[in-house]
Design a protein around this nucleic acid. Structure first.
Lengths: 254, 254
DNA sequence: CGACTCTTTGACTGCATTCAAGCTCCGTGG
DNA sequence: CCACGGAGCTTGAATGCAGTCAAAGAGTCG
């Protein structure tokens, strides 16, 4: 059937994403070894689960196209979105510790992944030091990315949260070679709200507020950033305006 | 001077923390190799910096005693606390990606660390596959720990945040072989507030609220958990009570 | 076309922040 | 030894931002 398509897709050295992905820093032979262990799952439809929390982790996954979200379900049964994944990003890294997935992941839109069987990946890491180092780098990157996210949540105001969110997305799209000022959101308002710990209505209100100020234009999931500097200034000057020299609570100790 | 003390301290196989630390899963010879690369820095006083964001990462550090906090300074100059570190926990993992530290760390109280020079640690990882795997596990653990933290922040209510914070601390102290119901906070109220993205006053109010309900007793930084189940129920039943059919308001702790 | 999901908008309530003042603890120096 | 001062913590009162509830608009699909 379309097995030839799968073959094409699994070729790292013709993949536009390879610089953002595991092959980064590997030589031609090493990339070829990596290619041989990659399997392709059939594309996932929106809302379809890639894996569930608690499942044994037999593979890691790289986003090939589309987008995903990871989430946890807390004691009351409500979801908390942990992260969004764009093409080139590795999913499942939190499972390496315990051997089973610590969160669930589903597709936001129709999406494709590269599957990396863990046993073969580990074998390869033992053989190719560069790959092992790249794995370590990817893990470390995920940690520092999570830290940035925690800082984002430290800014309590809904306006700042949404502005930060858009700026982060803008950067990630730029890295992918897409436009940094014009892109389509892969996620629904509800997903954004849940991710930012806001209500759906608040997210909606902030979108319209940013529109009215001509900072962005919104049409459904299509976003245009009209004034990048103004968007940045929302995040940066959050507290300066009102209190420059007077009691700034949090920032006493250098 | 006290170089003999330093020698004693750097012996992993006599260290109570070794099961929580890098030596976990290593055999006697491997632990000995690891011991040889460990250096000891002199103890740090409260508020003293271990490293600053942007510094080149030449070493990783393990908390030997005391406690630390990592933090970032955002555009306005105010701090955001990212994480607290208790004995046995590895600091600096977010630097492996870029080679320089992505956050700053200072001591909360007088504290000691084991220093692991990165170049020697990497050499050792290449030689000892078990150590490399353990490093990967520690990195992965940090990621899933960060995810739990993000979920914590998803629960907006100040009461739930503080209850979760205390429960997480309780578990970590238990792992260290300390009492899970009676411990001293290493951090000030301000640090907790900053970490939980709350104001100092709100944290204080929630402490007194928990005291009045006889769930905990507070004396300065000394905490006793009087009713662990009730504390857990605050986190778990956060939304069940109210959104069944009525507005909550009337229903208290039943 | 109707049923559905997703999104927007409005009105109201409440929780956490903010501002302000008083308290406790602790080290320092008279 | 007590007085003093400062840092950290607690408490009170008022404001405002975001959540909740409710309903209607917009887009999608069978």
């Amino acid at each position: 059937m379309n097995s030839n398509i799968a073959t094409i897709i699994t070729t790292c050295h013709t993949c536009q994403l390879s610089d953002l992905c595991l092959p980064y820093g590997l030589n031609v032979n090493e990339i070829e070894s990596l290619e041989h262990i990659i399997r392709n799952k059939r594309p996932l439809q929106a809302k379809q689960l890639l894996y569930s929390k608690g499942d044994e982790c037999k593979s890691l996954y790289v986003v090939k196209s589309g987008g995903f979200r990871s989430f946890l379900i807390n004691a009351e049964g409500s979801e908390q979105t942990i992260n969004f994944y764009l093409p080139g990003e590795l999913m499942g890294l939190d499972a390496l510790f315990s051997g089973s997935f610590c969160s669930s992941i589903d597709a936001l839109v129709t999406s494709a992944v590269c599957e990396l069987p863990l046993n073969r990946l580990n074998e390869l890491c033992d053989k190719i030091p560069n790959l092992q180092h790249q794995m370590t780098r990817v893990l470390s990157k995920e940690i520092s990315h999570n830290h940035d996210q925690l800082v984002l949540f430290g800014n309590n105001s809904a306006k700042i949260k949404l502005a930060s969110f858009l700026l982060i997305l803008s950067k990630r799209y730029e890295l992918l070679g897409c436009s940094s000022t014009e892109f389509n959101l892969t996620m629904r308002r509800h997903d954004i709200a849940n991710f930012l710990s806001l209500s759906d209505e608040t997210v909606s209100r902030q979108f319209t507020a940013l529109s009215k100020d001509k900072i962005i234009s919104v049409n459904q999931r299509a976003i245009k950033i009209l004034d990048l500097d103004l968007l940045k200034s929302i995040v940066e000057h959050s507290e300066e305006e009102d209190s420059l020299f007077f009691n700034k609570r949090a920032s006493k100790a250098m």
